[in-house]
């Protein structure tokens, strides 16, 4: 893995919690790394397995979902459903001999701007260490 490897990461954000965290972050002048592409969804429960796979198919090196806390999902089970789908994709990746750590789910709370940036950095870090999705 080369040191200047810049992973492509796709992040799914729930527009309720995570996105308000994003605006807080913005007001705090904290920016996400530019290699993290954000996709906003009304609720993480709407993210299908296929949505989580597609970025990998199209060249992403990592994917994560940022949604509400388990007990504060506006659609009650949205985040729980998303967690199950992420777990499913982890298994799929494993079967393809791709590191399951390349996909993750985070629970954020509205207004936590710092956490919003932190998860992006954390994912970025994990995926950078893993390198590109390609066997030598």
């Amino acid at each position: 893995m080369s040191d200047n490897f810049k992973p492509k990461i796709v992040a799914f954000y729930c527009s309720n919690c995570a996105s308000s965290a994003a605006s807080v972050a913005e007001s705090m002048n904290k920016a996400l790394p530019d290699n993290v592409k954000i996709v906003q969804v009304p609720c993480t429960g709407r993210i299908e397995i296929l949505h989580l796979l597609k970025p990998f198919e199209e060249g992403a090196d990592g994917v994560y979902v940022a949604g509400c806390q388990e007990d504060s999902c506006q659609y009650v089970t949205g985040i729980t459903k998303a967690a199950k789908r992420v777990a499913y994709v982890k298994k799929t990746l494993e079967q393809l001999d791709i590191e399951p750590e390349r996909i993750n789910i985070y629970n954020l709370s509205a207004g936590k701007g710092q956490a919003f940036v932190d998860v992006a950095l954390e994912m970025n870090d994990i995926v950078r260490k893993l390198g590109p999705v390609l066997s030598e």
């Binding site: 597609k54 990998f56 198919e57 060249g59």
Partner: peptide, 18 residues
């Protein structure tokens, strides 16, 4: 739905294997 998932999975596998 599952056809799309499987197709995508096969493509990811291909990507992984270059």
């Amino acid at each position: 739905k599952e056809a799309a998932i499987l197709a995508s999975t096969l493509k990811i596998a291909a990507r992984k294997n270059g």
